[in-house]
Design a protein around this nucleic acid. Sequence first.
DNA 1: ACTTTGTGCA
DNA 2: TGCACAAAGT
Lengths: 365, 365
Amino acid sequence: MLEARLNEAAILKRLLEAIKELVADANFECNEEGINLQAMDNSHVALVSVKLDATGFKRYRCDRPMPLGVNLNSLTKVLKCAKDDDVVIIKAADDADILSLTYEARNSDRIAEYDMKLMDIDADTLGIPDTDYDARVTMPSSEFSRIVRDLSQLGESVRIEVSKEGVRFVSEGEAANGNILLKQSEITTKAGSSSTKKEEDADEEEENEEDGEDEGGDGKKKAKKAKKEKVKKETGEDVSMNGEEEDDEEEFKADGEDGEEEQEEDSSSKKRKKAPAKATGKATKKAKKSKDGDDDGDLPDGVRIELNQHVNLTFSLKYLVNFSKSSSLSNVVQLMMSNDVPLLVSYEFGQGHIRYYLAPKIGDD
Amino acid sequence: MLEARLNEAAILKRLLEAIKELVADANFECNEEGINLQAMDNSHVALVSVKLDATGFKRYRCDRPMPLGVNLNSLTKVLKCAKDDDVVIIKAADDADILSLTYEARNSDRIAEYDMKLMDIDADTLGIPDTDYDARVTMPSSEFSRIVRDLSQLGESVRIEVSKEGVRFVSEGEAANGNILLKQSEITTKAGSSSTKKEEDADEEEENEEDGEDEGGDGKKKAKKAKKEKVKKETGEDVSMNGEEEDDEEEFKADGEDGEEEQEEDSSSKKRKKAPAKATGKATKKAKKSKDGDDDGDLPDGVRIELNQHVNLTFSLKYLVNFSKSSSLSNVVQLMMSNDVPLLVSYEFGQGHIRYYLAPKIGDD
DNA sequence: ACTTTGTGCA
DNA sequence: TGCACAAAGT
């Protein structure tokens, strides 16, 4: 039995609007910690991963893990029937093939209920490469959208180069070449910069775990490897596949062995030796942030670059444009990159996140 | 070597948006006085002429005249990558086949650079008929857009009739006929009317030249001929072809002999015996305006009609609709007409102008 | 590229 | 409540 009550239908609507073009059908994996979705795009080039923390719901109950196989197009249609500020109640019986969505108007004088057929979807839970990233770029999501939209007019692909100078997006087309340089708003290397990050809980965790190199002053990570570890954790933390920990450079692979979102709590404590109850959500994180006076916070503008090593990768703009539809979910986006490893594009939105992975084009850097 | 710095990308974006449907490729003729473009539309029916005064740029440098052959579609794409308030720097080396556009964000932490291939375009510099117009209608550009859009739904062409009564736009279609009469806001004939005109320098010149009939009271021109002379100068002034002065009724013809915008100064003084340095630009004009307390100034609404002689012409609405895309460049548009002569549709926008010429349909009036 | 729909503003 | 602008669909 699943019953989840969400205060704002808007979040769900935007999520589906963002991924419905990328994926046709997907399982919403529900367990007591929340709802996760993981799927490869139709052409098996990109991977999308959505997490909604149980704590993000007004009310949440999930007796036992259950996958809800959903046709995203249908769900999008159903969600369009909700007003943005409606309260949504999602319900599914334990062995039912029906998903029920109830929309309650704020004033409660309208209650709409929709039932949607569920489907069985091969649970190809995907192993997400648990990569150590060499560069993390935090920027306004609107700017990222703008850049990929602009460059997609010129060419098929974009080369993203992160250096101390900043981030450079380069696209070469038949009619014209484009080249956009974003300088970071403040300090160039990691942390210390007072530049704000975003609702990225990762940093606090770093402090807990990797200790010495907290956000404070040291511009660079002590050791590249250490840094990588951190970065990885920051982003990899919530990724629904946790049971296994391939170090990196692995392409996405299907695996059904992870405990269905039993989630980080366990695995993180075991493998990463830190376990600041991620599931407890933002409250904890934010509290920590304010204490630390760290880089987190929401920078409306401004670009932040955290860099271990020069990266230079080429990606298909078509996919990036698609990813950038998630801008409505957050004002900030993070790009995580290491050479020869899939790019991670991450939007954090309070109740969870949506992350996209995209393998670089070969013959780049 | 060309280097031009424009404070607002918007102006260029709008210009290209306005003409890209009409013309595929064109030469931007650059010289020390500014940048000019002249081209016939793809079907050789209409002619478009754009002028950007050097003085309109924040910085402008052009060592020697150079034509930049541009594919307008490509340029449009590149310009779409600029935000409206970006600063644009246009650069071209002397014998390069590359045009470089650099966009600097207001806050300067984003710099985008685009390279565009240039092409060789047959420099069919066109002779624009230096017509004496019998009627000039000044009206809000939005109103003009509305009228041609409306009428284009009914029929293929519009008959424009200017009389003392006002301007009448008539279209006859299969399903319905339309007929729009615009009465002028105040006095019917020339000048004196306090009706504002627009950034139209012409009027002051009239005063200088034709004297007696300054903006003051006399509603009509003394002599029709004199009036015509004036009108011609007013509009024909900046038109890039000045060397020759075919009196009128000539269709556009290619000619390479005009000194590439050596411009009016010379010809006007010689031929028209008045030469209030048009090239010096609006400052002069405006100063004069304010002094005279004449009709100039920007009338947001209101229609002004200057008429020597009844005109009655029929035009293809398809083209007029196309021309009216320039509304974003100016709140005011001027229509200049004489019987059996191409219509001139002119938008003035501070840094220059965009003008369209369209031959009337035969069998009209 | 144009038309239609939806949203924000007056 | 109506109008205008912007975004999406055809």
